[in-house]
Design a protein around this nucleic acid. Structure first.
Lengths: 342, 342
DNA sequence: GTTAGCACTCTCGCCTTTCGAGTGCTAACC
DNA sequence: GGTTAGCACTCGAAAGGCGAGAGTGCTAAC
């Protein structure tokens, strides 16, 4: 069994190691964290903790370093014992909202400032695009034979693409086509569009090339659904942390983060829970086996969900991080609910 | 005076140093580049070149390393003596054009692939937004009291923003407002919009809040003009080069590149010439004094110009780089002229 | 003008030594 | 029985010493 005092020692080791990135000795703990005991006592406890698999010694006569299991225990303790109290929104919302009107802008801006703030890499997953419902469509003329097709979806996401149209169509024609299409597609999800197009073919009055354009855009959006769904910010921040002072490691981290598929998979898993942490190899990404990923999910007004993740070395200040991240997620949810959508 | 043979030696030193990143000795030159002479001869030449300020010795008994002046001479020689022949467009254009319809997409995609290809950091400067001319405007309803304002400019750049509108306006109202506005603003530059809005105030029939929205958007675009005008790709590539194996240096590079103002200034200077190189301290950015920036300019159909830059250590293969970059710029110009704008 | 030869310099890698932080163990203490 | 002081021991990091090798400058000969 792990006694209360062992837990204290373990927590002290974690805190000190997070701060210094150096193996922690028994004397340091006794002096700075638990002056009521002598170093010898701590030494015995640490020896036990090592045997129990929570601490490791880089070499026989050095201090100890916390383990995946140690972090796991610590983080579980933080999450389960209610030690994470998201700070109430402090009014940042109002300052930002004036200038950010599209959902992606909001999310990306928040992510960027989060990464600046905590000096880690931040990834955000946007809601899955093919589940989005179309609100309306509009065509606007660009040149004689081309038009811009703008699709407005419920989650406040706007997408556009240039489509070829017959050169005989006037702006007014395009407008009435837009109205007709809006009516027909409104409320449908993007994945339904393809099917609808088939059924619609008979209504050939609706410019076929435009139809094709809509189909293209829908396809493209679906395709993007995986690629574009993840945005990464502050990946350079990794260079601030000593575990990456070897350029080779930094490079491997960066390439792992750039290859978004893996991260995406991980973050989709986390989207249902409120907040969770994948420590070390738990994240399942080989290149990131020495890193941790902390994921929190946010919600938009109409049931769509996304998630925000902080990625950094295993040695992270989990307490602050969990607090900050869960605050961020709840602020984000708030902003998206209030300002966009229905 | 610098003799022809001295130039040959200098060029050999540069080429070898670019390849190996190690100081180059006289024997290497004699063996690999100029077997018609002995190492002693080369030694004498190198000694002269050092005295003339083209080479430096890291320490007394090591090979020599080329200087800012050496690179300068070399690059001038490449540029002036017509050694840069942009490769004719090889058909990449067609493959890309189908999927890239907006000017920014085109430029950014090219920049990204350029940075992947040459493993350096690439920056692109987009045309100055406030000089862009408005082509047309369109409002589309989002919710009861909000509309999306889309502005189409000549250079194929599309911008949008959400604006507040009176809740009484129907979609048809918005459409006719759009037409009226398009008529009025078409052909004007963004910086003229502010002034026009004043004069227009009397025509109060045009929803005042929309007008305000237009003004806001114009303002915002001007504001973005500097921030958003520069895009950076592949900044992580810097980690591939030995001169940045010290993390501290890599970090300083990355922060210098992220702070876009300086780069923007530098690239604006280069926009008038076809292609030019700023070697070492010539680029005027303190953090990049050990780096070179090679800038080429591209052109869009209607007189707007932007530029592309490759940023890397001073030790770069200038010949290939200049060729690649100038090809890229000309391909880019071609694509933009053919596919967009007038 | 070019080259061969030689003495000289300086870095780099390798080894050894020293220093110190930290441990484990034992014996004494409360 | 838990806690503590003391001591011998281990091992890595930093410092110093040494030899090898690459490269130079200079001189004298071709």
């Amino acid at each position: 069994m792990i006694t209360e005092r062992k837990k204290q020692v373990l927590e002290a080791v974690i805190k000190d190691y997070v701060k210094t990135a150096e193996p922690v000795g028994s004397r340091t703990i006794a002096r700075h964290y638990m002056p009521e005991y002598s170093s010898a006592t701590i030494r015995n406890e640490m020896s036990d903790l090592e045997e129990m698999g929570y601490l490791t010694q880089p070499h026989v006569s050095s201090g100890r370093v916390p383990n995946v299991h140690a972090y796991r225990l610590y983080v579980d303790h933080l999450i389960n014992d209610g030690l994470i109290n998201p700070i109430k929104d402090t009014g940042t919302e109002k300052a930002l909202i004036a200038r950010l009107q599209q959902m992606e802008d909001v999310v990306c801006t928040i992510a960027q400032s989060l990464s600046d703030m905590c000096r880690y890499t931040v990834a955000v997953m946007l809601p899955r695009q093919k589940d989005l419902r179309i609100n309306s469509l509009q065509l606007m003329p660009i040149s004689s034979a081309r038009a811009l097709l703008v699709v407005l979806t419920d989650a406040g996401i706007i997408r556009d693409a240039v489509v070829q149209v017959s050169s005989e169509l006037t702006a007014d024609d395009l407008y009435s086509i837009s109205r007709a299409m809006s009516e027909r597609f409104s409320g449908r999800t993007l994945s339904e569009v393809q099917g609808l197009l088939q059924g619609i073919a008979i209504h050939a009055k609706l410019e076929p090339r435009v139809m094709q354009g809509v189909g293209e855009l829908a396809k493209q959006m679906e395709k993007q659904a995986s690629a574009d769904q993840l945005r990464v910010f502050g990946s350079q921040n990794i260079l601030f942390h000593t575990e990456f002072s070897d350029v080779e490691k930094a490079r491997s981290f960066l390439s792992a983060v750039e290859e978004k598929q893996n991260l995406l998979k991980l973050m989709s898993r986390g989207v249902k829970q409120g907040i969770c942490a994948y420590i070390g190899h738990e994240n399942g990404i080989v290149e990131l086996e020495d890193c941790s990923v902390v994921v929190a999910s946010y919600e938009m007004g109409n049931g769509h969900r996304g998630s925000v993740a902080v990625i950094g070395p295993m040695r992270m200040p989990y307490q602050e991080l969990l607090t900050t991240l869960s605050s961020t997620a709840s602020i984000l949810s708030g902003m998206l609910k209030n300002s966009l959508g229905a």
